[in-house]
Computed example of a mutant assay.
Amino acid sequence: MDIALADLQTYCGAAPDEAVVVIDVLRSFTTAAYLFHAGARSLLLAATPDEAGVLARRFPSAATVGAVPGGFPIDGFDFGNSPAALRNACLTDRDVVLCTAGGVRGATIARHAALLLGGSLVCAAASARLLRRLDPPRVTFLMTGIYVDRDGDEDIACAEYLTALLRGQAPDPAPFERRVRESTFGRRFGDPAYPHLSRADMDLCAQADVFDFAMPIVCQEGVMMVVRGE
Score class of each variant (00 low, 15 high):
E160H: 10
D172N: 15
E154Y: 03
D93F: 07
D209S: 12
V122G: 01
D24T: 08
E160L: 15
Y147Q: 10
L86E: 00
A124I: 04
D78G: 15
L142M: 11
V21W: 01
S82I: 11
V218S: 08
A63S: 09
T48F: 06
N81G: 03
R94N: 08
A40W: 01
R41A: 13
D2V: 10
L130Y: 02
D155Q: 09
P60M: 10
A164Y: 01
D149Y: 07
A200E: 11
R167H: 15
G186V: 00
C158S: 01
V218I: 15
T108A: 15
R87D: 05
R167I: 05
V227Y: 03
F77Y: 15
P136N: 10
D151P: 04
T30Q: 07
A15T: 09
R111Y: 04
A56P: 03
R41M: 06
P137S: 11
V65A: 07
Q207L: 13
H37E: 15
Q169F: 06
G13E: 06
S198K: 14
A56K: 13
C219V: 08
C205P: 01
C99T: 15
G102H: 01
G229V: 10
R181Q: 06
R199C: 10
Q169Y: 03
R129H: 12
L116H: 13
V68W: 00
P73F: 06
T140S: 05
I217S: 03
R138Q: 14
D50R: 11
D209K: 08
D209V: 06
G80P: 14
V25S: 10
A114K: 02
A110C: 06
L35I: 14
A4F: 13
D78W: 05
Y161I: 02
P16W: 06
V104W: 05
L165I: 11
P16L: 10
R179N: 05
Y194K: 05
G106Y: 08
P60H: 11
G119R: 00
G106K: 12
T30H: 01
F29W: 07
D17W: 07
E221G: 15
T108F: 11
P175F: 04
F185G: 11
D24Q: 06
L117H: 02
A40S: 13
R57F: 06
M215A: 03
